[in-house]
């Protein structure tokens, strides 16, 4: 019976314990920003006397949902996002008392289309990508009709492209990289057709269904969330193309090469200048109301926006994040340090 009393005691203890105070920063959010935020957090923990922040990789949407669920130590202080906060999310935040949000645009991430270094480098446009990967495409005979994607090899799409079967390894629908690829590459490639662009105004749902649906006949291979796996498969199969984050391209530059998209390779300068078309912004959102409640938030934000971190030669650039321009860094850095709340 001793065991039973221990049991009752321990449950009583759990129930009666007050909300436990937190002395380390809690960060959630995008898996794309995760590799960058973790470097900052690790460094912040080493150079300051604060505890190392805890970072969860929940995805942008999941992170903002947690972030906007309210104030207090049970909620995260900062969320990372690979897109800007939506109006609906902002309103949810306001409703739950998170009224003062500090927004920081921290840099860009490119999505690479690449193949093995053993193979020829391929030069593509976003329209080619759409035609190669969409489920339904405009009929090759011309006209405004849609047909199930008939293309089997790249040179059927355009005679400039090589005579290679279309085989693209990419992330599954649950991945943020896939969302971004669909939005940035497929949708703009899709809009290049006038009648589809018209459709956007008349029937937005049909437009989205057309531009955002990837073919399922085997030409696009869902290779799992793990970008390393895609790189390994490309190495083994020089005929395939792969889609993954820029940092994986950088880390494996001896194995895979970027394809040229509309005249630009996915490299540092092309993404920073905005020339490379498939890139997305990275943000963090912090609760101003938590500064002073949880130790170290202001200092963490200062570390993130310091020149040594997000600058052109900063350690985030070494990890594959594309930095902002000097003026943008000045402007956003001072907005973050003064704590200007976000307004939408």
């Amino acid at each position: 019976m001793f065991a039973k009393s221990v049991l009752c005691g321990s449950f009583a203890l759990f129930l009666s314990s007050p909300v436990l105070a937190r002395d380390s920063i809690s960060i959630v959010g995008s898996s794309t920003v995760f590799p960058f935020a973790t470097v900052v957090a690790e460094r912040f923990g080493k150079v300051t006397d604060f505890k190392t922040p805890k970072i969860e990789s929940t995805g942008s949407g999941g992170g903002l949902k947690l972030f906007c669920s309210g104030l207090g130590t049970g909620t995260p202080d900062i969320t990372n996002s690979s897109r800007r906060i939506k109006k609906s999310e902002f309103e949810l935040c306001q409703e739950n008392g998170v009224t003062e949000i500090i927004e920081g645009l921290i840099g860009y991430d490119g999505i690479a289309v690449a193949n093995s270094v053993e193979a020829e480098q391929i030069s593509l446009t976003r329209q080619h990508l759409f035609m190669a990967l969409a489920k339904d495409v405009p009929s090759p005979d011309g006209g405004d009709t849609l047909v199930p994607n008939p293309y089997k090899s790249w040179n059927e799409i355009s005679s400039d492209l090589p005579d290679l079967a279309i085989e693209v390894l990419g992330p599954p629908p649950t991945s943020g990289t896939r969302d971004a690829f669909v939005e940035l590459a497929m949708e703009s490639g899709c809009k290049a057709f006038d009648f589809i662009n018209e459709m956007k105004k008349s029937d937005e749902d049909a437009f989205k269904a057309l531009c955002h649906t990837i073919r399922e006949d085997g030409a696009y291979v869902e290779a799992g969330e793990n970008d390393n796996l895609i790189v390994q498969k490309l190495e083994a199969n020089p005929n395939a193309l792969g889609i993954f984050g820029f940092s994986f391209l950088e880390q494996n530059s001896d194995l895979v090469q970027s394809s040229v998209i509309e005249g630009f390779e996915a490299d540092f300068d092309a993404i920073a200048d905005g020339d490379y078309p498939i890139s997305r912004p990275l943000y963090f959102y912090a609760k101003k109301q938590h500064i002073g409640q949880i130790p170290g938030i202001a200092e963490y934000l200062a570390e993130f926006t310091s020149e040594g971190a997000w600058g052109e030669d900063g350690y985030l650039a070494d990890k594959g994040m594309i930095p902002l321009s000097d003026e943008e860094r000045d402007e956003i850095g001072s907005a973050v340090s003064s704590g200007t709340p976000l307004e939408l």
């Binding site: 959630v28 995760f34 957090a41 970072i55 969860e56 990789s57």
Partner: peptide, 17 residues
């Protein structure tokens, strides 16, 4: 429950991340 996280500090007790 948030235990898939980047943790640098060694947890010193059952309430540490």
């Amino acid at each position: 429950i948030g235990m898939v996280a980047f943790i640098v500090d060694i947890p010193a007790g059952i309430t540490d991340p």
